[in-house]
Amino acid sequence: MADKFHRYDVQVVWTGNEGTGTSSYRGYSRSHVIQAKGKPPINGSSDPSFRGDPTRWNPEELLLASLSACHKLWYLGLCAEAGIVIVAYLDNPQGTMVEQSDGAGQFT
């Protein structure tokens, strides 16, 4: 069987220029919009700890949601192929990011 390639195209548009661009760390908003053709936009920002808007999705939340959704779809597919009927599914993923003293970060 030949390999299959699946291409995904999105656009992330920074909407946080408050008139002076990134002239200072506190001088701009972290707001952005994630877009893909034919789909509703997703309003994003950084985590509030990094001067982000708490009413918008942050990359860490989107990472958790993506991993959870991927796992759910894989699991449901396996169940369907095995003849196991699933009638509901709920996941409450949690993640922890460690911000290191040098400014680097990682999920643990």
Rank of each mutant, 00 (worst) to 15 (best):
Y8D: 06
M1A: 14
T20F: 12
D53L: 02
A2N: 11
T20S: 10
D91P: 01
G44D: 03
G83D: 09
A80I: 12
G27K: 05
K37G: 02
L73N: 10
T22I: 10
H71P: 02
D91A: 15
G19W: 00
A88R: 15
E18Y: 06
S31K: 08
M97F: 10
W57H: 10
L73F: 12
V10I: 14
S31N: 13
G77M: 02
A2C: 04
G44H: 01
T22Y: 14
P59E: 05
Q35W: 00
T15C: 05
S45H: 04
V98F: 09
V98W: 03
P41C: 02
K72Y: 05
C70M: 04
P40K: 15
C79P: 04
S101D: 15
P59M: 01
G105D: 14
I34N: 09
A104D: 09
N43C: 02
P40F: 08
P93E: 04
Y75A: 01
G77S: 06
S23N: 14
R30V: 01
L64I: 05
L62C: 05
Y28E: 01
C79D: 07
V12C: 02
Q11L: 12
D91L: 14
V10D: 04
K39G: 01
A65R: 09
A80M: 13
Q35Y: 05
G105W: 15
Y28M: 02
T22S: 09
E81P: 03
